[in-house]
Structures are given as C-alpha cells and as structure tokens.
Nucleic acid binder design. Structure first.
Lengths: 124, 124
DNA sequence: GGTAATGGTAACCATATGGTTACGAATGTA
DNA sequence: TACATTCGTAACCATATGGTTACCATTACC
C-alpha cells in the first residue's frame, strides 16, 4: 500500500514544523480565516499561506474561500494513520533497544534466528 | 518548553521518510549493522548513513562502533511525546471540523466567545 | 605486512522548506 | 466609482533533504 506510505510522509512532514502544529492547535477552537491564523504568529501572510498549503496537501486542513476571506477548517482524520503507526512502538518506549541488545549479547543463545543468519552473511 | 517543541520537530521530521520508517521497523527485530540496514533498501550506503544521522539526531537510533562495524539500536522513547501530541486530536478523527463549523454558523449563539471576539477585530 | 571489507565523509546536484518583499485579483464598503 | 481589505502568487534567497560517486580511515584476516 504505497498510498498510505505516501500519506504518512505528508502527515509527518506537516507535523514537523512548530508553526503548523500551532495552526492545528488553533483550529481546534474552531474555523479561522487566514488573517486570524497569521495574526498571533510573528510571520508574514505568505509564509502562513505556504504552511497552509503543506497542511492542505496532507489533508489536515480544508480551505474554502467565502467571499473575500478564506475559512480554514481542521480535518484530523489523517492523524489516525500516523497515530496507529507510532503506537506500534508503544511497547518499546520504556526499554532502550541497545541496552536490551547488550543483554542479549551476553547470552548468545537468546539471539533471534534472523540475527544468527545475518552473522552468516545476510539474507539471500 | 521550547526544547520539547524542537524535539517534536526532529521526531516528526525523522518519521516523514519511508526509508527511515522502514529502518525503524527493521530495528524492532533487533540491533543491526549499517550494512545489514542498507542491504534491503535499493539505496547507497552513504544515503543510509544520512538517514541514520537524521534518526540519531532525533534520538530514535543509537549508533555504536564495534570494531569495524557499526551496530544500530532502536530507542523509541522520543515517539512517546509525538504520540501524546497526536493523541490530543483523537476526538477529532471522526468529525470534520468544517462540517461542525457549518453547523455552528447556522446557530450563532453556539459560537465560542473567542470566535465572537475574533469577528470584532481579533485579540489585542 | 598486504589486502579486502566496513562504513564514514567530501563534493556535488536536484528538490523541498521556510522565509522575505512586491505585486495582482477579487471583494466589501464609503 | 474609488478605495481599502483580504488573500494568493511570483520572484528571490538560505538551508535542509535525499540522492549520487569518489575517496579515506579502520579493522579483520591471509
């Protein structure tokens, strides 16, 4: 499913900027015009426009011209796949993998078969 | 807490590339050398090195030279903050905000005080 | 010691961000 | 109609990705 992968690319990339995350946080309180979104951030309107385009491309924000103003709305549904992806790592949040591995290396018998294969030269 | 914000930047940015996500998925099965990581991906070793640097900067991967090889380990702990951030939007996953707003606009009394303020000229 | 494997860095290129200023298009309003 | 608002785009710049090839430093092994 390449589409989902591409979708995750866009979602995570959109979330990687603090201004864009703040825009999303602001849209939680309700719809907002571009001017209302630009006001609290010390940044120019075109910069906000670009951020909105990134958010729009990720499907996180919907823009709709209403006369002279553009009303932006939140669509958080793409975050679901992102949350699902990250959640797969939940069981690793508390344990450091390298520490685990150091433990495993002191007991070679506990290495996974895959790791043993790799030591013989890798997968065919 | 600017540090956390910056940390989220790096984490989300690191997760926005499919190769890096695949590397993380692979490290779940255990530690791996750079060569083992580069093998399944149709990409050069320097490219993997760059991806690892991004993952390392985000704190998601630990690298440790062991003689001639570099062993890479997973550290998923930075994902916790990312998951917490995304989870705040969980209640919005199913509802489209613009649809909600259209409903609110038919009943102006249900607008939040903040929205009413914005219509008068924004926050001072 | 000589040689092959491992992997890091340098130099280079194309593209995407993130920002600016300048300008134009559309719309509301005096 | 003239003018001010709102917003988008164009052009430009700096930096970060994402990729390549070429080269170098270490290290294991004959």
């Amino acid at each position: 499913m390449v589409t989902i992968t591409r979708h995750l690319d866009l979602t995570f990339a959109a979330l990687s900027d603090p201004t864009r995350r703040a825009i999303l946080d602001r849209l939680v309180h309700g719809v907002a015009t571009v001017g209302q979104l630009a006001q609290p951030f010390a940044v120019s309107r075109p910069a906000i426009s670009k951020h909105l385009r990134v958010l729009e491309r990720a499907g996180l924000v919907t823009r709709e011209r209403d006369g002279r103003v553009s009303r932006c709305g939140l669509d958080a549904s793409p975050m679901k796949d992102a949350a699902d992806w990250v959640d797969r790592y939940r069981r690793f949040w508390d344990q450091r993998m390298d520490q685990l591995v150091q433990y495993l290396e002191t007991e070679p018998d506990k290495l996974t078969p895959q790791d043993k294969t790799k030591k013989d030269g890798g997968t065919p």
